[in-house]
Design a protein around this nucleic acid. Structure first.
Length: 285
DNA sequence: CGCATTTCCTGGTAGC
DNA sequence: TGCTACCAGGAAATGC
């Protein structure tokens, strides 16, 4: 989306960013954008970040059901347009931000001041940062006892992995989603990082995953849905081993894994566990 | 602070 | 047909 948006936004002047949704923490300070030009269109994790000429920054997140287009939505979709971006110069005159469930974000903040966006402020490294090593990733996973899947979704060990890609990557790396993050070995962390990089680059190449709501800026669906190996495929046989995969809930999120390829986490047998100061994770498989 | 739970929000759908 | 109840989940807020 960043790539698709860049030619429409970079270098152009924002005449007005018009708020249609009720203002609030998710849609804030858009009036500040008026008259500023867009210096560049960047991205951190799932956030689009566009620095503006007067020192502010446009922050956009699609949430679950967000999309951006230059075509004015019609029909029932029209009522979900939350923001209209009016642009000067060459290119589309207006961009439309749709967000049916209002889980998205569209706000202007002083550049780099993410106090109102704690996830962005504490975002982990970019998956494709060359200087981000498997050892770094392993060290980050070591900071939490939370289930590795839940920790991935927090965006703290690595940026940009959501529910779909977490399940896909854990399956590829043969890691049970309930494994405590700190119990992921260095070798497994390396496999997981490689799996995350692979699944993300494959999905980007296919223009993303459209289940229902996600749309490219031209309104087309992304093509990765057909390539999903695990997400939404509970009860179906694992393509690697044929075992029936299981759907559970991990951290309030629907989760699918293969009980044969992704073995249940073993309880920790370290001194802390012997002292009883830590409850062994009881896998629900 | 770390971690778990709840909340926000609405289209879609299962069940009656 | 029309109603209610519930589900989906990214990130923030709240509760221990």
């Amino acid at each position: 989306m960043r790539r698709e948006l860049e030619p429409w936004l970079a270098g152009r002047v924002l005449k007005r960013v018009e708020l249609l949704a009720p203002a609030g923490p998710k849609y804030a300070s858009l009036e500040r954008a008026a008259g500023q030009s867009v210096l560049s269109v960047g991205r951190r994790g799932k956030f689009i970040l566009a620095p503006l000429s007067a020192g502010d920054e446009l922050v956009i997140h699609l949430g679950m059901t967000g999309s951006i287009s230059a075509e004015e939505p019609t029909g029932p979709a029209a009522q979900h347009v939350r923001v209209r971006v009016h642009l000067a110069g060459k290119g589309p005159e207006t961009l439309y931000f749709r967000d049916a469930r209002r889980f998205g974000r569209f706000l202007v903040v002083p550049a780099g001041e993410y106090g109102s966006l704690p996830t962005l402020a504490a975002l982990g490294p970019e998956p494709f940062d060359d200087s981000f090593s498997a050892a770094d990733f392993a060290a980050r996973l070591g900071r939490s006892r939370t289930a590795v899947k839940t920790y991935l979704l927090s965006q703290r060990p690595i940026a940009g992995v959501g529910n779909i890609y977490a399940d896909e990557a854990l399956w590829r790396a043969r890691i049970h989603p309930l494994t405590s993050a700190r119990d992921v070995s260095r070798a497994k962390a390396a496999e997981l990082l490689a799996a995350i990089r692979a699944v993300l680059s494959e999905s980007i190449a296919a223009n993303g995953t459209t289940i229902k709501d996600y749309r490219r800026v031209d309104g087309e669906a992304g093509g990765f849905y057909e390539r999903l190996a695990v997400y939404g495929k509970g009860g179906q046989p694992c393509p690697r081993c044929g075992t029936e995969r299981v759907r559970t809930v991990v951290g309030q999120r629907g989760t699918v894994h293969c009980p044969h390829c992704q073995r249940s986490p073993r309880r920790r047998a370290g001194p802390a566990a012997r002292r009883g100061s830590e409850r062994p994770v009881r896998p629900r498989t």
